[in-house]
Design a protein around this nucleic acid. Structure first.
Lengths: 236, 236
DNA sequence: TAAACTTTTTTATCAATACAAAATCATGGA
DNA sequence: TCCATGATTTTGTATTGATAAAAAAGTTTA
């Protein structure tokens, strides 16, 4: 049963062999597979090695493991897909285009209701509101509408954000621990259409992001991209 | 330096402590951190345990490890975000709505140029083309435009796809090994608007997916969702 | 000086063993 | 029959010890 691929770590070749067994149906979905001890004997290796292979396959969502209950093959309910959301400046400069940032609005106000519900703050609490545009070769590439919780980040009130974009400032000054992303598609209203040099009702690709440091919500941002151009892609 | 949280595995508590050090800047980004042997001595545990903690933090993208070069803290270039793309039927039934599937078109034709380039097949090769609608409580929820490579999956030509949706059939019959996803926003043309009960030019959330089995491309699908309603969300 | 080797450091993997924790299964009593 | 409980099995974690592999740093040679 041993398939020693030259140079490959043992636990790796065990993983690929098991993946094969799962895909070809040698190990049927839903069925119990042999225990670690048995497999270790079959593969002629230590249990710890089999354990690592099985553990990582479980992390990949191919196996379900429970103490005493054993390990079984599972059919994934959905597909787990990993996307990279690049920093806007890098995203633009990577294409060779020149990056420019412009601040459109900076105010400290009480947010409207729809934003309030996202911010997890008591109503009436003034919050830093920023609107800015990111250009690629002088063509508008992303419109950013951001709220920063001054209770979490009081230092932000001192920053003008005229030279540095909120994102870069935050990355530099505020280490975050958790984030939530929501992707959706919307029609551009008149204001956004003009800012992004689009026609009204053109499709926008929208990323909403909330960022926390420990328990405190730091910032809520809506990023608008012209939908025709923007694509997020991934290969598993 | 030990912070033994009751019940937690040692490597876990080491991980959370190290995460802390990274976030608070005790370990500066870019800087070299102590070697495994040193850390093991500090934590009063075996080197293998420290190794597991470091390895997993590296997998999470917080550390960069190289033999001989040591381990250093890295600033992530972008954010890696994991989304679950659920199977459409489950997605609908989970909300309590009734699911219905309807086949609109089934033909074997030579694909148009834009699809050809995605399919990685020689031109003039007839391919199975399917269009279908997925309803939630009789309201159209997703429009699916799919191409299936008959060279990879000749069995598909025998299937009518009147009762079972292409996705469910494929999941059942064709184990896949790789997939590529592209997300974007588009304006609905007249045809799609009518199918999805939308106004023309309404924003659509579009998922394009290509699926391979080993080296062979199996299927290319475009999934259209009404953008106002559809949201993909994740919490890291 | 520059290229080719060698040394050495550091991480990567593996094995063998031990104990912990969880969950099933069987057993016995109410 | 049903529930509680304890034995047993299986995975999870940790330790120790050892070797392999990678790559930087140093050394030698042409």
């Amino acid at each position: 049963m041993k398939t020693k691929k030259a140079g490959l770590p043992v636990y790796q070749s065990i993983k690929t062999e098991m993946r094969e067994w799962i895909q070809t149906g040698i190990w049927e979905t839903g069925s119990l597979i042999p225990g670690e001890a048995t497999l270790a004997k079959q593969f002629g290796c230590a249990r710890a090695t089999v354990n690592r292979a099985l553990r990582e396959l479980a992390e990949e969502g191919k196996l379900d493991r429970r103490r005493k209950a054993g390990t079984r093959v599972i059919t994934p309910e959905g597909r787990s897909v990993n996307f990279e959301i690049p920093r806007i400046r890098l995203e633009i400069e990577e294409t060779g285009a020149a990056y420019r940032y412009a601040l459109l609005l900076r105010e400290v106000v009480v947010p409207p209701a729809d934003v309030l519900s996202k911010l997890e703050i008591p109503p009436e609490l003034p919050t830093l509101h920023l609107r800015c545009l990111h250009y690629a070769n002088e063509a508008p590439f992303q419109y950013e509408d951001r709220w920063i919780n001054l209770k979490s980040i009081p230092e932000a009130e001192q920053e003008k954000f005229e030279k540095i974009s909120p994102n870069e400032w935050l990355v530099k000054h505020v280490p975050w621990t958790d984030a939530e992303h929501i992707l959706s598609a919307h029609n551009a209203d008149a204001e956004k259409a003009e800012l992004l040099s689009l026609a009204e009702r053109d499709a926008l690709f929208v990323i909403q992001r909330r960022t926390w440091r420990k328990e405190n919500l730091v910032t809520y941002v809506r990023l608008y991209y012209p939908g025709r151009f923007y694509q997020m892609r991934t290969i598993l």
